[in-house]
Design a protein around this nucleic acid. Structure first.
Length: 771
DNA sequence: TTAATCGTACTTTTT
DNA sequence: GTACGATTAA
């Protein structure tokens, strides 16, 4: 890719036809060169969308003489933003850093910080993530004497968030949207929640999008300033925007009307978060005079994979019409791996990866294993670890959502903003200082009565009528924070935080406790310290406030490093926008993928199908489907039916491991509810009489394959677990039911197909672990 | 009044 | 496996 360095802003003669326009196709070129007026780019999966966006930005700078900071480019994830940033740096050099580019949340939080005063906030406002919000809501519920078991804070938060995103005020909500007692309570909590956030000088994720709207609508002069400033607006993944995002960008675009949105309705997978697919469907109506450019040539996948993807998405009714095509090879057929249970599934995948990696000379980084829900990762991790396969787990509980990290963050927030009651409550007794529930509610009550913040109350704790032993602890707490504040004035950030963690005794508690868990927590805290140290060195504004702003918008998805030589494990959601030579889509079972509707909310089957489509289109060359016939759910093993999606895919491009076609059976599943219709007879794939669990016939181990792989079959350090499948020289294949002890001395209870249940000592039995 | 321990329920996807 | 709430011990 050619690289240009942009010299000073004007004065230069730019090439009229920069070379980067030569490696684009006709459609892409059109999208790059259409500069003024609204533009809708319908970008199919793998159609070179990022290339178009980055070239487009480069073109705006070259040909339209736009200054980078006059361009606002919004993405949905940090991952996407960073990738774009990197690619633009390659095109136009360091200038790219001056673009207003990032996630909606990060870009607008930047604007909010500049304009905070107009909203009655200070620029240091805290950002509450979902967990923080839930804590606040829980506390409000408690104050209202509600049982937080019956009224789930999670649910209330969701209702409030939905209302906020539709820009329904608490008053209007209580007037018109109350349906049942839960909503009635939610309405009351809603009002208090807003007050509480404001008082704590904090905003939640929704506010980062809503407050700008409020700001612009109440201050036309400010709106005008930004309208004039941003000459070009670009929005990625437009199909995932929600109402607030639509509104705020609509306001900004009203000036120059140069709004360019890129999206693919087939990849809309965030409706649960308020994404409104009609935003993209109605773009042409909302922006008169707009031009539409479809990108249909796929550069990523083989013909087989595309055919498969196409056969899936065609089942959806509501979609913009487009057909992907490719010049790539036909490629290999997709393999369906059928498994006895989830352990079996994980082992088979691990084995397949190892075989394929060696046979095709691939790297671990070429593989991705995708699943519908985060908890499915655990079994996979086990299998990978056992085989020594390097993997990288992406997503799940984010680093910044871990309890110990949130504690440290709360301490840091207090250094910036003492009036953040939530943070005080979080860490005042962390580590334990003898300050309990009763003391805290007394302090809170006093604070409410005197209309002061908690901090003001505990500064003068002597005058409060509380449990005497707690006073000492409170003084300690206040004292540590005050001393740290002084320290911050004369020392660097990292030193200050280290000081705080030591003086407060926060680190010590982990050392005193010798559990494995506390060791991990300590490591995490040290890792946090590293992050601060790195930030201090690399940021051009290394203040504590900036650091806090930054980390509050970071997710674990951001830790994905595609250069790491490791297999990627992530949810399908997390994989959007990425591509891998080899992809496994796991857990293709009814009630899992598509996910089963829990009581109350019903599943949008079309969205699940789009999710499946997203998963398929991540694959470049090889694609595997897998499912398990049994799976542990809610504590015990249940029988699973394979996913209806497997019946929907074009069966000509999928084969089982043995080369058989996957059976297309008439679907007995009602497509609207996902439940079996009454009177339907469900034919199981293996009726109980003739079922042969996979582990009884370990076919890939009687290798006709050219490469045979030795798995750790020695007993000395072996880790035994119930559910493991082993081979005994005499008794054949068996499954471990129970184990006592580990290593060569372990005593195992094993069920063998041939001889039934046996008790063995590992050392004497000469067992081979096969899965 | 607070701290530690035990039992139970919960697992959709994310900024 | 984990995170929370209830129960008990100090």
């Amino acid at each position: 890719m050619p690289t240009f360095v942009l010299k000073n802003d004007d004065s230069q003669d730019y090439p009229t036809n920069p070379p980067f326009l030569e490696d684009v196709n006709e459609r892409q070129r059109e999208a790059v060169l259409h500069t003024d007026g609204p533009l809708l780019i319908i970008a199919g999966a793998g159609s070179g969308k990022t290339r178009v966006l980055t070239y487009r930005i480069a073109n705006l700078i070259y040909q339209k003489r736009t200054r980078p900071n006059q361009i606002i480019a919004l993405t949905f994830t940090n991952k996407a933003a960073r990738e774009m940033q990197e690619r633009i740096v390659n095109l136009i050099g360091e200038q790219a850093k001056r673009l207003w580019m990032g996630t909606f949340h990060s870009v607008f939080s930047r604007i909010l910080r500049i304009e905070a005063e107009h909203l009655g906030y200070t620029p240091d406002f805290s950002i509450y993530d979902t967990v923080d919000s839930e804590r606040v809501i829980k506390m409000i519920l408690r104050e209202m004497n509600m049982n937080t078991r019956e009224i789930k804070p999670q649910k209330v938060r969701h209702i409030i968030s939905t209302a906020k995103n539709q820009m329904i005020s608490p008053e209007i909500f209580q007037d018109k949207y109350v349906q049942g007692p839960l909503y009635d309570i939610a309405g009351q909590v809603y009002r208090r929640y807003l007050e509480r956030c404001k008082r704590n000088n904090s905003m939640d994720f929704d506010d980062l999008l809503l407050k700008p709207i409020e700001l612009f609508e109440h201050n036309p002069d400010i709106l005008q300033k930004y309208q004039q400033h941003f000459r070009y607006i670009l929005i990625d993944e437009y199909q995932d925007t929600n109402h607030a995002q639509y509104r705020v960008t609509n306001l900004l675009a009203a000036g120059h009307k140069n709004i360019c949105v890129v999206g693919d309705d087939s990849q809309s997978i965030y409706s649960f978060r308020g994404a409104d697919i009609t935003n993209i469907l109605n773009f042409r109506r909302d922006y008169p005079g707009s031009v539409q450019v479809p990108l249909e040539q796929n550069y990523r996948s083989t013909k087989v994979i595309l055919k498969c993807a196409d056969s899936v998405i065609k089942k959806n009714k509501s979609r913009l019409d487009k057909t992907l095509w490719t010049r790539n090879d036909d490629g290999e057929v997709i393999t369906l791996i059928e498994n006895y249970d989830e352990r079996d599934e994980a082992n088979r995948i691990a084995r397949t990866i190892e075989e394929k990696r060696i046979r095709q000379n691939l790297s671990y980084r070429d593989f991705a294993v995708l699943y519908r829900t985060n908890y499915q990762s655990r079994v996979l991790e086990d299998a990978f670890r056992r085989r020594g396969i390097l993997y990288q787990l992406v997503g799940g509980i984010s680093f910044y959502q871990r309890k110990e990290i949130k504690d440290v963050t709360a301490y840091l927030r207090l250094l910036v903003n003492q009036h953040d009651d939530e943070s005080i409550l979080r860490v005042i007794n962390e580590p334990t200082r003898g300050i309990g529930e009763k003391t805290l509610s007394a302090l809170l009550k006093k604070a409410r009565k005197e209309e002061k913040s908690l901090w003001e109350i505990i500064m003068d704790v002597e005058s409060a009528d509380i449990y005497k032993p707690a006073i000492r602890g409170i003084r300690e707490f206040v004292d540590v924070l005050k001393r740290t504040e002084k320290k911050l004035k004369k020392s660097g950030l990292t030193d200050t935080v280290r000081f705080l963690l030591e003086e407060s005794g926060y680190l010590r508690q982990f050392i005193e406790e010798h559990s494995h868990e506390s060791l991990m927590r300590r490591q995490n805290v040290m890792e946090m310290l590293n992050a601060i140290s790195y930030f201090e060195k690399s940021s051009n504004e290394p203040s504590l406030g900036t650091f806090l702003q930054e980390i509050s918008l970071v997710t674990d998805l951001d830790s994905h490093d595609s250069n790491e030589p490791a297999v990627t494990l992530m949810t399908v959601h997390g994989s959007k926008g990425l591509e891998f030579p080899v992809v496994f889509i796991t857990g293709l079972e009814e009630e899992l993928f598509p996910i089963g509707g829990r009581t109350g909310d019903q599943v949008d089957i079309e969205e699940e199908r789009r999710l499946f489509y997203v998963a398929i289109t991540r694959a470049e060359n090889y694609l595997y489907f897998s499912y398990a016939k049994n799976r542990f759910r809610f504590g015990d093993q249940v029988e699973m039916r394979r996913s209806r999606f497997l019946d929907e895919v074009d069966s000509s491009v999928v084969r089982t491991e043995t080369g058989a076609t996957i059976r297309q059976k008439g679907s007995q599943i009602s497509s609207s509810t996902g439940r079996r219709l009454p009177g339907d007879t469900y034919i199981s794939y293996d009726s109980p009489a003739r079922r042969e669990p996979e582990w009884e016939s370990p076919k890939s181990d009687n290798s006709d394959s050219t490469v045979s792989i030795e798995y750790d079959s020695t007993q000395e350090n072996a880790v035994w677990r119930p559910g493991m499948v082993i081979i005994h020289p005499k008794f054949g294949a068996g499954k471990i039911l129970q184990c006592q002890g580990q290593g060569e001395d372990a005593r195992l209870t094993v069920f063998f197909k041939k001889v039934g249940q046996k008790k063995l000592v590992a050392k004497l039995a000469n067992l081979t672990i096969i899965g």
